[in-house]
Design a binder for these strands. Structure first.
Lengths: 350, 350
DNA sequence: ATTAATATTGAAAACCTTTACAGCATACAA
DNA sequence: TTGTATGCTGTAAAGGTTTTCAATATTAAT
């Protein structure tokens, strides 16, 4: 394995001091053109690549941002990450991905130590899937990180003592259910679990609030639901077995498109056809949602925008603490049926 | 923003030298128990987290592996990455993700400089999507990296001068088409483009070879196809418009499940129903493939195994150069129809 | 109590940069 | 010709660790 070339080697080769080499390579002014050429030439000849560890140590800056997410193999998060990393790159930062361990779904002590130990220039962390302990001020929680470096939290269920950016889950829920009610549905179930309902900005919370306020029956799946297709299928099965006849829901609001995918399949298996026997709205607008049968009506949570914007507020000089909500938008396709009022703003409203 | 605590602070607090602190914290032997306690206590009090840049610089080791992939938002690659990162973690390594820029889809000079500059302990790189120039020995190609640190290449279309691990694309193709032919199909089209057919281990190459050898007509989409659902739809459209009547293919072999997704939709739009009017086999066995209508018959390329194994061969003491092929396996679902011979090994073969 | 052996600790070098500051030329003005 | 300003370049410190080697403290043996 070849030896790494260092700045002394280049200085030697060019017959100058390391200070000059550094100046040339970092583009500082005040180097004679002839010297510049010599150094560049030497660096090229030796294939010199500066040691970024040393650079980081010396400058106390790594030009690197950390992104903390659960489940990068979930389309929502991989989209978010892609967008974040691209924006970071545009702004001159490199990005590293940290995954919150599945199962634990906790910011562990080692995680925090690692994040701080890397001397990153900032952290974007996803707040959903976290338990309340992760938001404690003390110990080795998420917020501990914010004491050492800029921190922005995405999709936190509660406002925190740092800039927060979230999709409008409450609004998404309202839009979804309003849409279903406009189509005449009353018995609307949530395809989502009971894991986090104590927080304000969650689908569960919003669903419960909405239904309670309007005196509509709430259908609660008594198990936790993480957001996979399998869980979607299980949830539909449970619902259809436990609420029959006149109590059977006529519409479903799915936790996300993956859950919807499983739900659709399960319904087909049970002989129900969409949108005739059951209407379905979902969340995320993921890449596959135009390709389901029927195509999914879904609320776009703008994972891309979330990703981009989160690094922007992270890097902004002064961005305000607390919660900023990103509006979500309804994408009407076919899974709820499409009444006249949804096909466009035609005059055929009545 | 809080100051970072360094090893001198801890040494002071504990009343020992930094050498002792280092020894205690890195778990070296030869420290008196009482001293150990003092140091640990001091470190805890001050919330000390060692600067990993300094550690890396000093040890000439970063305990970090680079993973170079195109498109992390593509399920195949995000699965691969997840598996790689989990395995790396198990083996005591951290992982950072580098994306080959879309569009260029080239290992750029900056990329290579960066990879080497980070002084990583090894690189796993994906070789598909790369052009032949990336495999050149000279300049700033992928292989240049291998001179400085261990390098393993995944899914390279050609054997390289480093350990390579690939899914068995040739076998996958053979299995897929054999499957279709066993069901009576002769006119079988590839839903895949003409980008890389000069390489040996690609779906295009394998398809062309297979069909040529058996004197079957080859259906070639004259545009490059990267692997998205949209492209799948476009490809089907082109096919159905250009080959009509007796020349119309009766079966499709899709580049991957995403392409299949688009293809299914396009066919539905054009009034064709699967598997009756058209059979479809695909590649990848991605999370959504059991949920399409009809569920996809597909070849599992084992992205997970590829990810795990790639870091294993990267980290192995002596792993042999050249190509190792990972077998792929056919997953029969409904998109080709399921003849008796596919439903199981029943005696109803004839 | 003295010596030898061993266990524990500390000083300093090495890892590779960046950058403040000092020094030396050269050019220019007086 | 001398003094001053200016432009380049080099020296050395700082950034935070690990690790070798030397020094000291402790224990065991006589």
């Amino acid at each position: 394995m070849r030896q790494y070339v260092n700045i002394f080697d280049v200085a030697n080769e060019a017959g100058v001091s390391i200070a000059t080499v550094s100046r040339v390579l970092s583009g500082s002014a005040g180097v004679r053109e002839a010297t510049r050429k010599k150094v560049l030439e030497a660096a090229r000849r030796l294939d010199y690549r500066p040691n970024m560890l040393a650079t980081g140590l010396s400058q106390r800056k790594t030009r690197t941002l950390g992104v903390v997410l659960p489940m990068i193999d979930h389309p929502f998060y991989s989209t978010l990450y892609m967008a974040a990393q691209r924006r970071a790159m545009e702004l001159g930062y490199f990005t590293v991905l940290f995954q919150i361990e599945l199962g634990s779904e906790r910011i562990t002590r080692e995680m925090v130590d690692h994040l701080i130990g890397r001397r990153l220039d900032g952290i974007v962390a996803s707040g959903d899937m976290l338990k309340s302990a992760d938001f404690d001020e003390g110990g080795s929680s998420l917020l501990e990180i914010g004491r050492y470096m800029p921190l922005a939290v995405v999709n936190s269920p509660v406002p925190l003592n740092c800039p927060c950016l979230s999709s409008d889950l409450e609004g998404a829920c309202r839009t979804a259910i309003d849409h279903l009610r406009a189509l005449g549905h009353e018995r609307i179930a949530l395809l989502g679990g009971n894991g986090y309902e104590s927080f304000a900005n969650t689908r569960e919370h919003a669903y419960l609030e909405y239904m309670r306020k309007r005196g509509l029956e709430q259908y609660i799946y008594p198990y936790t639901l993480g957001g996979t297709a399998q869980e979607g299928a299980a949830c539909v099965k449970w619902l259809l077995e436990n609420f029959t006849g006149a109590r059977r829901p006529t519409a479903l609001f799915a936790f996300n498109d993956l859950v919807a995918l499983g739900a659709i399949r399960q319904m087909r298996l049970m002989g129900l056809s969409l949108p005739h026997d059951m209407a379905l709205v979902s969340c995320d607008n993921q890449f596959f949602s135009p390709y389901t049968e029927p195509p999914l009506t879904t609320i776009d949570l703008h994972a891309q925008k979330l990703g981009r914007k989160s690094v922007e507020i992270l890097l902004a000089e002064r961005s305000k603490l607390g919660m900023e909500i990103l509006p979500s938008t309804l994408i009407v396709r076919a899974s709820c049926g499409t009444p006249a009022s949804c096909r466009g703003d035609s005059d055929a409203e009545g």
